[in-house]
């Protein structure tokens, strides 16, 4: 459904944030994109949503195929209309607007009638936010805000959801609740998800497949259970020590990944 091949992204004509990333997401799958700070995860999502230009970034090479169509450098509103919708890092609510107004903006690319129907759906999915519908969203708790952010994306009838660190700064219970809803939507509606996380254990517990990105490159990928069992992943991302001195990710020889051409 989504296939990124050899993506390279540069900011300000100078900073190479994504060097060479290829990945794919099948329909109805949850795919985790893991990596430490500054690995380039958010940049990949911004490239997918077509909003790099607003930060002086651009796709230098590579391609993005969504539903067999080339999406590279399409304007963001057209990408949203195709059902590729992002929940940005740090929620980024319209904090001066009410909860319901946030949701209404989420449904902007559809009709009013659909927006009304989806409002009810979102309140069904996240009953916690319904009582706050007329409150200014900036005053909600972090967990409630994340629900509004996810709900707002759902208003646009996504077929694939791009989630950027949904667990950031939230209590474990709230995280669990949000992840359960996402899993539910995947099963119910066949929603596909590209899930960016720093919390690898959490992400791999829900994902089918995972990619690990370091310094703008995919260094490892595999089925979620295989990644969870992988010694290096356990050491570097799950914090499980094994005997011997600590090594840096770069020294791990077998991470030098064979070149894989998607397409």
């Amino acid at each position: 459904m989504l296939a990124i091949a050899n993506l390279q992204v540069i900011y300000d004509d100078a900073i190479e944030a994504v060097r060479d990333v290829s990945l794919s997401v099948e329909k109805g799958r949850i795919v985790a994109l893991l990596g430490s700070n500054g690995a380039g995860k958010s940049t990949i999502l911004k490239a997918l949503s077509g909003v790099l230009y607003s930060e002086h970034g651009e796709i230098r090479s590579g391609s993005i195929l969504y539903d067999g169509e080339d999406c590279t450098n399409q304007p963001p509103f057209q990408i949203v209309r195709k059902g590729l919708i992002q929940v940005p890092e740090g929620r980024q609510l319209f904090d001066q607007l009410t909860v319901e107004e946030n949701l209404i903006v989420g449904g902007y690319s559809g009709s009013w009638r659909k927006t009304r129907a989806h409002l009810a759906d979102v309140y069904d999915l996240f009953p916690e936010i319904k009582p706050h519908r007329n409150r200014i969203s900036g005053y909600l708790s972090g967990g409630q805000q994340q629900m509004v952010a996810v709900g707002r994306a759902l208003m646009g009838e996504p077929r694939m959801l791009l989630l950027d660190e949904p667990s950031l700064g939230l209590a474990p219970l709230v995280i669990k609740q949000i992840f359960e809803k996402i899993d539910h939507l995947r099963k119910e509606l066949g929603l596909s998800v590209l899930l960016v996380e720093q919390n690898a254990r959490l992400a791999l517990s829900i994902a089918d497949y995972g990619y690990i990105v370091e310094r703008g490159r995919v260094v490892l990928d595999g089925a979620a259970d295989r990644l969870l069992a992988n010694d290096d992943v356990r050491e570097f991302y799950l914090g499980i020590q094994r005997e011997g001195e600590r090594r840096s990710m770069r020294d791990v020889k077998h991470y030098k990944r064979r070149k894989r051409w998607l397409l």
């Binding site: 940005p88 609510l93 319209f94 607007l97 107004e101 903006v105």
Partner: peptide, 16 residues
């Protein structure tokens, strides 16, 4: 109003 509040997110919501 949403765009005035946070333009980068307005783009992600499909606002032209």
């Amino acid at each position: 109003r949403a765009t005035a509040n946070r333009e980068s997110t307005a783009l992600l919501m499909g606002i032209n």
